[in-house]
Design a protein around this nucleic acid. Sequence first.
DNA 1: CAGTATCCTCCTAGATACTG
DNA 2: CAGTATCTAGGAGGATACTG
Lengths: 118, 118
Amino acid sequence: MTRGDLFSPACPTRRLLDRIGSKWTSMAVKVLAEAAPGEVRFADLRRRIPGISQKMLSVTLQSLVHDGLVARRVEPAVPVRVHYRLTELGLSLEVPLAALREWAEAHMAEIDEASAGR
Amino acid sequence: MTRGDLFSPACPTRRLLDRIGSKWTSMAVKVLAEAAPGEVRFADLRRRIPGISQKMLSVTLQSLVHDGLVARRVEPAVPVRVHYRLTELGLSLEVPLAALREWAEAHMAEIDEASAGR
DNA sequence: CAGTATCCTCCTAGATACTG
DNA sequence: CAGTATCTAGGAGGATACTG
């Protein structure tokens, strides 16, 4: 199964991490997952992701939509409202991602200890 | 459980992804996991991670050792041999990471399709 | 409200050369 | 063999201002 990884860009895991590993992606997915199967508005996402700028939220959502993990729905109104939700694909990713989240919450303290200089 | 994430740096998942999401980390962990509980030498790791430079492998391993995920053993010889293996902590991370890998191998094609422009 | 458009700064990763 | 030391380029991410 190590076959096929003839050059790094071909490794699926690496490519997946390149996408979901970008600074705000995991938090956006988390918020959307908590609301699933419901939708979340742009402004709500922004409120629920402390510290994120308008631009970075926009960029992050665009890449998620582009990758087919998130669906975007524009509600025609003035001013417009845009709603986001995880797609089927996004929801399926949530499963392993939730496992990783649990691990992180359970073990990051150990990593911190090790990093601190033991 | 969304509590505590008052500011992004506090999110454990975000911080975990910052570490294992760096370019070569996931591949190094994968190779070490495949060899576990055995050790892998620096030169072997380099051979098994096509495209990685000496420096990047060194840097990657250092951060893993620093975080307590990998153990480093120097075999006194001339020239020296250095062996690496996953620690208990590293092995426990392998579980959710393997799940993510499986997802990536099963679904990256769908992401590619969506990205390609559908 | 939900973006775009600029500009700017750091940090990651690569290339290269040297050493115990 | 397994690193360390430099230098550099490129891109991610942030600040700010403007718009349909």
